[in-house]
């Protein structure tokens, strides 16, 4: 965080505490023994094992996506390396063509997914940052209880929340439109967004804000001029998570877009690619990698924000 901020940040008194404790501990141990470094060879080995464990299942699916149905059923995916001549792009071909010869090209669904995702990331970020600011830095009665209620409501399953929203949207005439999707995604994202951003905001040294308050700055000015630059990385990071969820969402789209298949996102296409009775399940392997491509590009592209981003102010002891 210190490195990320363009403003001079006064030393956080709280952050000294751990060192003090560590010093005490050191004195007690009274030995200057050779430190066992976590980044030692053992550490690297553990990291590599973890990476292999985490990646192998996905890698198996990647290999599977280049095999025919019969091969997939007959032998394990690792056998594919002994049969390089049998690799095929037919699953990708089918998936790109929507699994049928007259199906809508995947391009349509990509456009829809983008049109859905961008505002569905933008709006919750705006509203959550405002609310998180209020919960962290404006004193008002019942603040803490409201905050607890907000994050506790994360537990409400989307499935029960969808029907009332869909009913209202139909009544006001935006059922089946992108607006219905944007507003629902916003409502469902807010508890977690507020919770995460609040955690970040309250870590910002109070002295920064108090100085601005003394100068007579309004909350609007503090928010825009002091807070926003500081939390830009956090906003970007949460934005990526939200993008991921919206991009992979099927449920909200299914409910809100009922009757408007022309607005369907890519997940709806991928969901039915396996056929009415799931007999073409093997196409799901290719479909999964087509749909994952965009989030992974976004993730890699935004790495710098992840590094310095989410909760980057977590320095309290």
């Amino acid at each position: 965080m210190t490195a990320a901020t363009p403003l001079p940040v006064p030393a956080d008194p709280a952050s000294e505490a751990p060192v003090t404790r560590a010093e005490k501990r050191k004195k007690r141990s009274s030995a200057n023994r050779a430190a066992t470094s976590l980044s030692s060879r053992t550490g690297s080995l553990v990291a590599i094992i973890m990476a292999v464990l985490w990646t192998t299942p996905t890698f198996g699916l990647l290999v599977t996506s280049f095999r025919t149905q019969a091969d997939i059923q007959d032998t394990g995916w690792w056998n594919a390396f002994g049969q390089l001549d049998r690799w095929t792009l037919s699953n990708y071909d089918m998936a790109f063509n929507g699994g049928g010869d007259n199906a809508t090209p995947m391009g349509d669904f990509f456009i829809n997914s983008i049109v859905i995702a961008v505002p569905a990331v933008f709006l919750p970020l705006l509203l959550a940052s405002l609310a998180a600011y209020a919960f962290a830095w404006i004193k008002f009665p019942g603040r803490d209880w409201l905050f607890v209620a907000v994050f506790a409501l994360q537990i409400v399953p989307l499935q029960i929340a969808l029907l009332p929203l869909a009913t209202w949207f139909t009544r006001v005439g935006i059922g089946g439109t992108f607006w219905a999707l944007w507003l629902s995604h916003t409502a469902f994202a807010l508890p977690l967004a507020v919770y995460l951003l609040h955690n970040f905001m309250k870590e910002i040294p109070p002295s920064l804000l108090e100085a601005a308050r003394v100068d007579g700055a309004s909350h609007m000015r503090i928010f825009l001029q002091v807070l926003l630059p500081l939390i830009t990385p956090a906003l970007a990071s949460f934005g990526i998570f939200q993008f991921l969820w919206v991009w992979n969402d099927l449920l909200v789209a299914l409910t809100m877009l009922g009757g408007s298949p022309e607005n369907a996102p890519i997940t709806m296409e991928l969901n039915q690619i396996s056929g009415t009775l799931g007999n073409r399940w093997y196409l799901l392997s290719a479909a999964a990698f087509i749909s994952i491509s965009v989030p992974v590009v976004v993730f890699v592209f935004m790495q710098r924000y992840f590094v310095r981003g989410l909760l980057a102010g977590g320095t309290k002891g």
Binding site: L162, L163, A166, T167, T170, R171, G175, G176, T255, G258, G259
Partner: peptide, 8 residues
């Protein structure tokens, strides 16, 4: 059935 309930 859900679409019946939401009027869609």
């Amino acid at each position: 059935p859900q679409r019946a309930q939401s009027g869609n």
